[in-house]
Design a protein around this nucleic acid. Structure first.
Lengths: 223, 223
DNA sequence: CGGCATCCTCTTTGATACTG
DNA sequence: CAGTATCAAAGAGGATGCCG
């Protein structure tokens, strides 16, 4: 019943036992699935258990349950129990959980080249793509803010909103976006990551509408 | 012999099977010990097998061997086989491996608050502390460069050198550092992370020598 | 000594089924 | 909806052996 054997430790994985901030972070975040749960809560915001399960195809139900309990014990997640009329639980990130976003962003940036050759049976969720795109629009000049980017791909339309207090993503469309990018998800990501410049990306089917000057604020290669 | 069952995949861990750059990054980096091996190679530079084992107390020898092979297969590590006179192997990070440093840095920053209450039997390596300190000196104004920081703690003296092309750390001392910080490792880290301002840190035994103006370039709270 | 490989035990994960 | 229960398979940890 009790999976904890060492009292005082809230993580399920065995600690590395190293007095090092990287190791301590991995003691909490390094379990399989843990950072993907944080990803889902960062993208989707407060989630029901089933919303999480839906955004984490492949996770076993007991593992999702275990990980949520660990995240809660470590202060990254809190659960809001809605009263009987609604009778559901909402899982929220705490401030400390939000503070882990730079880790997820760094992983997303490093991982982008890997989505080029991906097995055909990989699971797909549009919000993963939108979020992956948004991580390249975070270090921008503060001049041209706020800015909105409309993404149109076969996965459906989605929006990235860049404000001084952060970047948010959502499905759907926005009126008068500063930039509209249309094309295949991989091409859009390779362009935003700097792997392709504008000319190359257009050669691979990218269509861009809007003010190219706005792109400069994102340090993108408009050659 | 062959631990791989799915042909074409170089990682040992089962893939998440998600078309998402975060999940793809974790397919490669998410195995236990993997990011700590990258940490060691980032800090120590090219390493012999035993150097790595020494910087990774607790790792099983077969796991270190397995992980190095995975990292090599995934293009993060390459091995330099020295000819018979030396008869040793040096493990290097590739450019792609170096590119994972932002992930390690983000983990180090997030994990710093966790080293406050740490079990007394945790392993200690001075270079972990120096590196953890250095991650807070990376986003600086380019004006006052290069800059050198001397750290003196009971773990021994060490140096952080901040140049336009990056930040490096090493054990030992430097002549005429721009800043010298003396005190307990935890206090120095809490000060550099912004968790303590200068006055608070000095109240906990931090001694600072050098030009406080240099600190401003690191966005540190000199109140 | 450096760089593993083998063997063994224990823990964690994955898949599925079931429940208040 | 939000989990438990169960069980087989895979991975981690630890000891030791091997070979240039």
């Amino acid at each position: 019943m009790d999976s904890q054997t060492v009292p005082g430790y809230a993580w399920s994985m065995k600690s590395y036992g190293q007095l090092c901030s990287v190791a301590k972070a991995l003691d909490v975040l390094g379990d399989r699935w843990t950072l993907l749960i944080v990803r889902e809560l960062l993208i989707q915001g407060p989630c029901r258990y089933t919303d999480l399960a839906n955004g984490l195809p492949g996770i076993a139900s007991n593992l999702l349950s275990d990980r949520l309990r660990s995240l809660e014990a470590n202060g990254l997640v809190w659960r809001e129990a809605a009263p009987p009329p609604v009778a559901t639980t909402l899982f929220h990130l705490t401030e400390r959980g939000q503070a882990a976003e730079p880790v997820v962003v760094a992983l997303a940036r490093w991982g982008t080249p890997l989505i080029a050759d991906t097995p055909p049976d990989d699971a797909i969720r549009p919000h993963w793509f939108t979020y992956s795109a948004s991580v390249f629009l975070r270090d921008h000049d503060p001049d041209g803010l706020p800015a909105t980017v409309q993404l149109n791909t076969p996965l459906g339309p989605s929006v990235i909103e860049i404000r001084t207090d952060g970047v948010s993503t959502r499905a759907g469309t926005v009126d008068n976006p500063d930039i509209t990018l249309e094309g295949m998800p991989q091409v859009i990501l390779r362009f935003l990551s700097g792997d392709l410049n504008l000319t190359e990306a257009q050669g691979q089917g990218l269509a861009l509408r809007g003010d190219p000057a706005v792109l400069a604020a994102f340090h993108l290669d408009t050659a």
